[in-house]
Simulated scan of single mutants.
Amino acid sequence: MAGPSALFEPTRIGSLTLPNRVVMAPMTRSFCGSGGVPSPEVVRYYAARAAAGTGLIFTEATVVDMGPARGYLGVPGLCDDAQEAAWKMVVEAVHAVGGRIMVQLWHCGRLSHPRATAGAQPVAPSAVAASGPYLDVADPSTFDGHLSYVEPKAMTQADIDAVVGAFAAAAGRARRIGFDGVLFHGASGYLIQQFFNADSNRRDDAYNGDTAARARFACEIVSAARAGTGADYPLLMGLSQFSVSDYGWVTWSAPADLAVTVNCLKAAGVDGFHVAAHRINNPGFAAEADPAGHGLAWHVRQASGLPVSAAGGVTYSATIGESLMGADCHIADPAEAAQMLANGDADLIAVGRAMLANPDWTTKVRTGRWNELLPFRRETLATLV
């Protein structure tokens, strides 16, 4: 097995040079109040991970409007001047300690809920409610599963155009305040992925019909953002098979279908991808579709030829779902993550829960002290350590 040194080799995403291959995964924290404005505590939270030498930080998911896009209470936005000014403080603090940071832009679509949208009905490609209970990780009162998703409004062309414009406007704000790039949240069952998936996208227009048509909405977002930010600004797309409302949800049935989506996005202007799975090296497809059992990140990397950041339980013994239900998470040897880089499973490794519990994760791993890392406990979510 390779040693952890592979994690600390430099790399590039588009025009951005990274000092190492350790990424802070995007994780919803919900400490931004009703106005979606990051507080000074949020500034310190991100700066601490950057100061430890983390190669790239992805922010928590950040909504592009404070209405239907907003799925949970307390999440941040990047759609008004107060939010922009607060995020500028985060960016400046991260840069002051030598870090690099990209904002993850988000629209929840049908995974929103009227409790978080001031009563507004969620929107989606089609009027098809999500399965499973609505859970807000920042609100334990929802953990008993008593809330259900509501039927969303099927988006009109005007709705689609408005959301594309909101993503592009937020990307423009991101560049203006100095973010090192943008990650569009096309994973976990949220709005962009709802267009990718034939189960949630049952439209009878140009946004459905085949895999390329279902990628059209995401490509319009990328193209609009690219037009506003310029050719040299890194834009990434997040992908996953599953939804947070249904971990058995499958978006692409075969590698060839995934390749269509990936290459449509590449043609639209993305510079790379961030891929989430339960575990990075779990098979991305059923055995009959991929007998070799490669992970989804591997397939995205092969199809695109672009850099891929991969997230999925690589640093803990329990999956995110298991840990949120209270399971103990024991630290795993980071050499396993480094081996995935050596195997070509990904170009960067995204660390999530372990970096919540350990702001200095990168320092301790780089200096060979990973055995000193603390386990993650669900209670950690209630704090900004």
Rank of each mutant, 00 (worst) to 15 (best):
A2D: 08
P10K: 13
L16M: 14
L18G: 07
L18K: 06
R21V: 03
V22M: 10
M24F: 07
A25P: 05
T28S: 10
G33E: 10
G35Y: 04
P38H: 07
A52E: 03
T54P: 04
L56Y: 05
I57P: 03
T59S: 14
V63T: 13
G67H: 09
P68A: 07
V75L: 09
G77Q: 05
D80E: 10
A82D: 15
K88P: 10
A93S: 07
V94H: 02
V97N: 07
R100T: 14
I101Y: 01
M102E: 11
R110M: 06
L111H: 07
L111F: 01
H113C: 02
A118W: 02
A118I: 02
G119H: 14
V123E: 15
A124V: 06
V128C: 08
A129T: 13
A130Q: 15
S131M: 10
G132L: 11
L135Y: 05
D139V: 01
S141Y: 03
H146Y: 02
L147R: 13
E151Y: 04
K153F: 00
V164T: 09
G172F: 01
I177W: 03
G178F: 04
G178L: 11
G181Y: 02
A187L: 13
Y190Q: 13
D199E: 15
D204I: 05
Y207G: 02
E220S: 12
E220V: 06
V222G: 13
S223P: 04
A224H: 10
A225H: 10
A227N: 14
T229Q: 12
A231M: 10
A231S: 15
L235I: 01
L236I: 04
G238Y: 01
L239E: 08
S245Q: 12
G248Y: 06
W249D: 14
S253L: 14
A254L: 01
D257I: 03
L258P: 09
V262G: 01
N263A: 11
C264H: 10
K266R: 15
A267V: 03
A267F: 08
A268L: 04
A268N: 15
G272L: 06
F273Q: 09
A276E: 05
A277F: 03
A277H: 07
R279M: 06
I280E: 10
A289C: 12
H294L: 00
H294W: 00
H294P: 01
A297I: 00
H299F: 01
A310Y: 08
G312R: 08
G313Y: 11
S317Y: 09
T319L: 11
G321N: 15
G321H: 13
L324D: 00
G326L: 02
A327C: 09
A327V: 13
A327W: 03
D328H: 13
D328P: 12
C329H: 04
C329S: 14
D333L: 14
L341H: 00
A342P: 00
A342K: 13
N343A: 15
A346I: 09
D347Q: 09
D347L: 10
G352D: 10
R353S: 11
A357T: 00
N358E: 03
P359E: 04
P359L: 04
T363R: 15
T367L: 14
W370F: 14
R378P: 03
R378V: 13
R378Q: 06
L381M: 07
A382I: 06
